[in-house]
Amino acid sequence: MTEKPDTPDAFVAQIAKVTAAIADREPGSELESWLNDRFSADSVWFEETFALCRAGCDEGWLCENERGGVKFGRAVKEGDATHGFSVDVVEMTDVVGPHHSHPNGEIDLVMPLDNGAEFDGRGAGWKVYAPQSAHCPRVRGGKALVLYLLPGGAIEFTRN
């Protein structure tokens, strides 16, 4: 069994630009609007992050696991480098993922790999869930990468 390559410092530094800006903000609709304005899908930050995520998938330090048609992996554990957020990336193609809840909220960056791909109804950009929310994540219309930030690394998967 080969060991997963380390997450590059450049990726952590790129994500920290956002986590530094949102560390004291409550996840919810106001934060979603703010992120879609400040770190929009047509920004240089988005383009650079998308390129890093694609490279991470190709190089094996992102999305190294697969279950139920969803590729996934935790790139960064919550900690000081990302202001208390964990960083995960998933790759989904026309699939519904496992039901889970977000004790502290969930902040998702949607990066469509196929034109028209959407995550929970959102194309390229940010989708934010408030604390205590829950969902079955869904990608429709093709393939997408979704980077998600979890305050405190908190997520609870529903047992079947």
Score class of each variant (00 low, 15 high):
residue 60 G to F: 02
residue 10 A to D: 09
residue 138 R to H: 10
residue 78 E to Q: 11
residue 7 T to D: 05
residue 98 P to W: 10
residue 76 V to W: 01
residue 16 A to F: 07
residue 68 G to W: 12
residue 98 P to E: 10
residue 43 S to W: 04
residue 65 N to K: 12
residue 151 P to Q: 13
residue 116 G to Y: 01
residue 141 G to N: 08
residue 4 K to G: 00
residue 55 A to T: 13
residue 34 W to C: 06
residue 76 V to L: 03
residue 120 D to I: 01
residue 8 P to G: 08
residue 83 H to M: 12
residue 93 T to S: 15
residue 145 L to C: 02
residue 106 E to V: 03
residue 50 F to T: 00
residue 82 T to R: 01
residue 18 V to G: 00
residue 49 T to S: 11
residue 141 G to T: 03
residue 116 G to C: 08
residue 13 A to G: 01
residue 129 Y to P: 00
residue 9 D to V: 11
residue 89 V to S: 04
residue 17 K to F: 01
residue 101 S to H: 04
residue 2 T to F: 06
residue 40 S to Y: 11
residue 67 R to Q: 12
residue 107 I to W: 05
residue 95 V to D: 03
residue 25 R to S: 12
residue 121 G to A: 05
residue 153 G to S: 08
residue 38 R to M: 08
residue 100 H to S: 09
residue 100 H to D: 09
residue 42 D to W: 04
residue 124 A to G: 14
residue 25 R to L: 14
residue 111 M to A: 11
residue 50 F to G: 05
residue 32 E to A: 15
residue 136 C to H: 12
residue 29 S to F: 03
residue 53 C to I: 12
residue 135 H to S: 07
residue 158 T to H: 03
residue 42 D to S: 11
residue 45 W to F: 10
residue 7 T to M: 06
residue 11 F to R: 05
residue 35 L to Q: 14
residue 115 N to Y: 02
residue 115 N to A: 15
residue 136 C to V: 00
